[in-house]
Design a protein around this nucleic acid. Sequence first.
DNA 1: TTGACATACCTTGTAATACGATGTATTATG
DNA 2: CATAATACATCGTATTACAAGGTATGTCAA
Lengths: 114, 114
Amino acid sequence: MRDEGKISRWESQVRKGVLDFVVLICLEDTRLYGYELIIRLKQKAGLDVSEGTIYPLLNRMAKDDLVAAEWVEMPTGMPRKYYHLTREGRETLADMKIGWRRFTSSVDTLLEHS
Amino acid sequence: MRDEGKISRWESQVRKGVLDFVVLICLEDTRLYGYELIIRLKQKAGLDVSEGTIYPLLNRMAKDDLVAAEWVEMPTGMPRKYYHLTREGRETLADMKIGWRRFTSSVDTLLEHS
DNA sequence: TTGACATACCTTGTAATACGATGTATTATG
DNA sequence: CATAATACATCGTATTACAAGGTATGTCAA
C-alpha cells in the first residue's frame, strides 16, 4: 500500500512557502476578509488553508506593513476585517512574482535535465 | 530603502517546501554524495543550500526509505556517502512531479486572473 | 613546516510557522 | 430551540531550515 501521508505532508510543505505569495496575489485587486480568503483560495486555487493558518498569517503581514485592515460593520452578522495591500505590499508582491518565476524555472530546468 | 530581508526570508520559505523535491530530482539518474549535492543545486538551479540543511534532510529521507546510502572509500581524502533513490523514492518522486505541476498551475491561474 | 583553504562528514540550538483544536459571537434555518 | 454557517481569534505541538560549530583529511604556498 502506498503511503499517501508522505505526499500530503510534502504538499503542505510546498504550500507553506508560497502562502504569503498567493495571499498577496488575492489581495492585489480586491479587498478581502480572512474568512473569504479561505474560501477563495479553496475555490480558485484548490488550496485548503485552515483558519489557524490564515489569521496569524494576516496578522504577521499586517505587522510587516504588507497589508492593512479595517473593520467593517455589516447590517447583519459579525463585523468583517477587510484587508488590502499597502504600497509596500505591492512592491513586495512585484518582487515575489519575479522570484517565483525564477524559482519555478530553476526547478523546471532540473526536471528537464533528468 | 527597500527591505531586501523580507524577500530573501520569503525565498527561503519557498525553497523549504520544494527542497525534498529537487533533491529527489537530482538523485533520479545519478548517485551523489551530500557535499556534491550542495554544489550541484547551486550550479544547476541557483539554489544555495547549506550543509546544516542538506545532511539532516538526507538522513530524514533515508529514515523514510526514499533514499539509501553506502560509504565509498576514496584513494585519497574523506570517504563519501553516496545516496541513491529507492523504489519508494521513485514512486514518491513521480507523485511529487504531478503535485508540483498541479500546484504551480494553480498559482499561475491566480496570477493570470489578477 | 606551518597555516590556510578545500573537501567531506556531522550535530546542536534557535527561530519560524502551518495546522488542529478550541473558544467566542451572531444570524439563519430546519 | 438546536444546529449549522459565518466570522473572528488564540494556543500548543510538531516540523524544519539554517547558522554555528565540530571532526577529519589532503593540498599548496609562504
